[in-house]
Protein backbone atom coordinates (compact mmCIF):
# COMPACT_ATOMS: atom_id res chain seq x y z
CA UNK A 1 0.00 0.00 0.00
CA UNK A 2 2.68 2.49 1.04
CA UNK A 3 4.77 1.26 -1.89
CA UNK A 4 2.09 2.04 -4.44
CA UNK A 5 1.25 5.48 -3.09
CA UNK A 6 4.88 6.48 -2.61
CA UNK A 7 5.73 5.42 -6.15
CA UNK A 8 2.68 7.10 -7.64
CA UNK A 9 3.51 10.43 -6.01
CA UNK A 10 6.97 10.37 -7.61
CA UNK A 11 5.86 9.09 -11.02
CA UNK A 12 2.92 11.48 -11.30
CA UNK A 13 5.04 14.42 -10.13
CA UNK A 14 7.89 13.80 -12.57
CA UNK A 15 5.61 13.03 -15.52
CA UNK A 16 3.56 16.17 -14.88
CA UNK A 17 6.72 18.29 -14.77
CA UNK A 18 7.98 16.67 -17.98
CA UNK A 19 4.73 17.42 -19.74
CA UNK A 20 4.98 21.06 -18.65
CA UNK A 21 8.67 21.35 -19.54
CA UNK A 22 9.46 22.13 -15.91
CA UNK A 23 12.28 19.67 -15.36
CA UNK A 24 14.31 22.16 -13.28
CA UNK A 25 11.67 21.94 -10.57
CA UNK A 26 12.16 18.19 -10.25
CA UNK A 27 15.91 18.65 -9.98
CA UNK A 28 15.59 21.06 -7.08
CA UNK A 29 12.90 18.94 -5.44
CA UNK A 30 15.13 15.85 -5.48
CA UNK A 31 18.25 17.62 -4.21
CA UNK A 32 16.40 19.65 -1.59
CA UNK A 33 14.81 16.58 -0.04
CA UNK A 34 18.13 15.34 1.36
CA UNK A 35 18.93 18.63 3.04
CA UNK A 36 15.39 19.13 4.33
CA UNK A 37 15.15 15.66 5.84
CA UNK A 38 18.55 15.97 7.52
CA UNK A 39 17.64 19.32 9.07
CA UNK A 40 14.38 17.86 10.31
CA UNK A 41 15.87 14.82 11.97
CA UNK A 42 18.42 17.03 13.74
CA UNK A 43 15.56 19.13 15.08
CA UNK A 44 13.38 16.20 16.10
CA UNK A 45 16.06 14.10 17.80
CA UNK A 46 16.66 16.03 21.07
CA UNK A 47 12.96 16.76 21.59
CA UNK A 48 12.09 13.12 21.17
CA UNK A 49 14.82 12.12 23.64
CA UNK A 50 13.37 14.57 26.15
CA UNK A 51 9.81 13.23 25.99
CA UNK A 52 10.82 9.60 25.90
CA UNK A 53 12.80 10.26 29.07
CA UNK A 54 9.82 11.83 30.83
CA UNK A 55 7.55 9.06 29.56
CA UNK A 56 9.88 6.40 30.95
CA UNK A 57 9.63 7.93 34.42
CA UNK A 58 5.83 7.93 34.17
CA UNK A 59 5.93 4.29 33.13
CA UNK A 60 8.45 3.00 35.69
CA UNK A 61 6.94 4.92 38.61
CA UNK A 62 3.56 3.31 37.94
CA UNK A 63 1.87 6.62 37.12
CA UNK A 64 0.50 5.25 33.84
CA UNK A 65 -0.88 2.23 35.66
CA UNK A 66 -2.52 4.36 38.32
CA UNK A 67 -4.27 6.55 35.78
CA UNK A 68 -5.48 3.48 33.88
CA UNK A 69 -7.32 2.11 36.88
CA UNK A 70 -9.36 5.32 36.91
CA UNK A 71 -10.88 4.76 33.50
CA UNK A 72 -11.55 1.05 33.70
CA UNK A 73 -15.03 1.77 35.09
CA UNK A 74 -15.92 3.62 31.91
CA UNK A 75 -14.65 0.72 29.85
CA UNK A 76 -17.33 -1.63 31.16
CA UNK A 77 -19.92 0.37 29.23
CA UNK A 78 -17.88 0.44 26.03
CA UNK A 79 -17.01 -3.27 26.20
CA UNK A 80 -20.11 -4.96 27.57
CA UNK A 81 -18.98 -8.42 26.36
CA UNK A 82 -15.82 -8.54 28.45
CA UNK A 83 -16.40 -10.22 31.84
CA UNK A 84 -15.88 -8.03 34.89
CA UNK A 85 -12.28 -7.92 36.21
CA UNK A 86 -10.93 -9.68 33.13
CA UNK A 87 -7.25 -8.80 32.67
CA UNK A 88 -7.84 -7.48 29.14
CA UNK A 89 -9.60 -4.45 30.67
CA UNK A 90 -6.44 -3.34 32.46
CA UNK A 91 -4.36 -3.71 29.29
CA UNK A 92 -6.94 -1.76 27.30
CA UNK A 93 -6.95 1.06 29.84
CA UNK A 94 -3.14 1.19 29.94
CA UNK A 95 -3.14 1.41 26.16
CA UNK A 96 -5.69 4.23 26.20
CA UNK A 97 -3.79 6.19 28.86
CA UNK A 98 -0.50 5.87 26.96
CA UNK A 99 -2.31 7.04 23.81
CA UNK A 100 -3.83 9.96 25.70
CA UNK A 101 -0.33 11.25 26.39
CA UNK A 102 0.67 10.74 22.79
CA UNK A 103 3.07 7.96 23.76
CA UNK A 104 2.52 5.73 20.76
CA UNK A 105 5.55 3.61 21.57
CA UNK A 106 4.39 2.88 25.09
CA UNK A 107 0.85 2.23 23.86
CA UNK A 108 1.66 -0.47 21.32
CA UNK A 109 2.96 -3.15 23.76
CA UNK A 110 -0.17 -2.70 25.92
CA UNK A 111 -2.32 -2.89 22.81
CA UNK A 112 -0.73 -6.18 21.77
CA UNK A 113 -1.23 -7.59 25.28
CA UNK A 114 -4.85 -6.47 25.20
CA UNK A 115 -5.43 -8.25 21.88
CA UNK A 116 -3.85 -11.43 23.28
CA UNK A 117 -6.14 -11.52 26.27
CA UNK A 118 -9.17 -10.65 24.12
CA UNK A 119 -8.21 -13.64 21.99
CA UNK A 120 -8.63 -15.88 25.05
CA UNK A 121 -12.30 -14.91 25.12
CA UNK A 122 -12.64 -15.56 21.41
CA UNK A 123 -14.44 -18.74 20.33
CA UNK A 124 -13.50 -18.58 16.66
CA UNK A 125 -9.75 -18.02 16.75
CA UNK A 126 -9.35 -16.77 13.19
CA UNK A 127 -12.22 -14.26 13.31
CA UNK A 128 -12.23 -10.85 14.96
CA UNK A 129 -14.62 -10.39 17.88
CA UNK A 130 -16.78 -7.36 18.48
CA UNK A 131 -14.67 -6.22 21.42
CA UNK A 132 -11.52 -6.40 19.30
CA UNK A 133 -13.03 -4.12 16.67
CA UNK A 134 -14.33 -1.71 19.30
CA UNK A 135 -10.82 -1.58 20.77
CA UNK A 136 -9.47 -0.88 17.31
CA UNK A 137 -11.90 2.00 16.85
CA UNK A 138 -10.74 3.53 20.14
CA UNK A 139 -7.19 3.32 18.82
CA UNK A 140 -7.76 4.63 15.32
CA UNK A 141 -9.88 7.61 16.30
CA UNK A 142 -6.89 8.46 18.48
CA UNK A 143 -7.85 9.19 22.05
CA UNK A 144 -5.07 11.75 22.38
CA UNK A 145 -5.40 14.30 25.16
CA UNK A 146 -1.85 15.61 25.20
CA UNK A 147 -0.15 15.05 21.84
CA UNK A 148 3.42 15.32 23.17
CA UNK A 149 5.16 14.67 19.86
CA UNK A 150 3.14 17.34 18.08
CA UNK A 151 3.65 19.87 20.86
CA UNK A 152 7.39 19.33 20.81
CA UNK A 153 7.53 19.60 17.02
CA UNK A 154 5.61 22.86 17.22
CA UNK A 155 8.12 24.08 19.79
CA UNK A 156 10.99 23.23 17.47
CA UNK A 157 9.45 25.21 14.64
CA UNK A 158 9.01 28.32 16.76
CA UNK A 159 5.28 28.23 17.45
CA UNK A 160 4.10 31.18 19.56
CA UNK A 161 1.87 28.88 21.56
CA UNK A 162 2.80 25.21 21.03
CA UNK A 163 0.04 23.91 23.31
CA UNK A 164 -2.76 25.94 21.68
CA UNK A 165 -3.84 22.83 19.75
CA UNK A 166 -4.53 20.82 22.90
CA UNK A 167 -8.11 21.92 23.63
CA UNK A 168 -9.33 21.73 20.02
CA UNK A 169 -7.73 18.29 19.76
CA UNK A 170 -9.59 17.14 22.86
CA UNK A 171 -12.91 18.35 21.44
CA UNK A 172 -12.28 16.80 18.02
CA UNK A 173 -11.09 13.53 19.55
CA UNK A 174 -14.12 13.36 21.80
CA UNK A 175 -16.54 13.92 18.89
CA UNK A 176 -14.79 11.51 16.55
CA UNK A 177 -14.34 8.77 19.13
CA UNK A 178 -18.00 9.05 20.04
CA UNK A 179 -19.12 8.84 16.42
CA UNK A 180 -16.63 6.01 15.85
CA UNK A 181 -18.17 4.02 18.69
CA UNK A 182 -21.67 4.66 17.37
CA UNK A 183 -20.69 3.51 13.88
CA UNK A 184 -19.09 0.45 15.46
CA UNK A 185 -22.35 -0.39 17.23
CA UNK A 186 -24.33 0.04 14.01
CA UNK A 187 -21.95 -2.19 12.04
CA UNK A 188 -21.93 -4.78 14.82
CA UNK A 189 -25.70 -4.99 14.66
CA UNK A 190 -26.12 -5.24 10.90
CA UNK A 191 -22.99 -7.13 9.85
CA UNK A 192 -23.73 -10.75 9.11
Amino acid sequence: MVNKIWGSFIIIGILYCLSNNNIEIVNTAILDSTKTSFDMIIKIFPVMALWLGIAKIAEVSGLLKKLSSKISILLRYIFPEIPKNHESLSYISSNIIANMFGLGNAATPFGLKAMQSLQELNKKKDTATRSMITFLVLNTSGVTIIPTTIISLRMMYGSVNPTSIVFPCIIITFLSTLSGLIIDRIFARFYV
Partner: peptide, 10 residues
Protein backbone atom coordinates in the same frame (compact mmCIF):
# COMPACT_ATOMS: atom_id res chain seq x y z
CA UNK B 1 10.02 14.16 1.72
CA UNK B 2 11.49 13.08 -1.60
CA UNK B 3 8.17 11.86 -2.92
CA UNK B 4 6.01 14.61 -1.40
CA UNK B 5 8.45 17.26 -2.61
CA UNK B 6 8.29 16.04 -6.19
CA UNK B 7 4.51 15.68 -6.01
CA UNK B 8 3.82 19.10 -4.50
CA UNK B 9 6.45 21.08 -6.42
CA UNK B 10 5.21 19.63 -9.72
Amino acid sequence: ILSINIFLKS
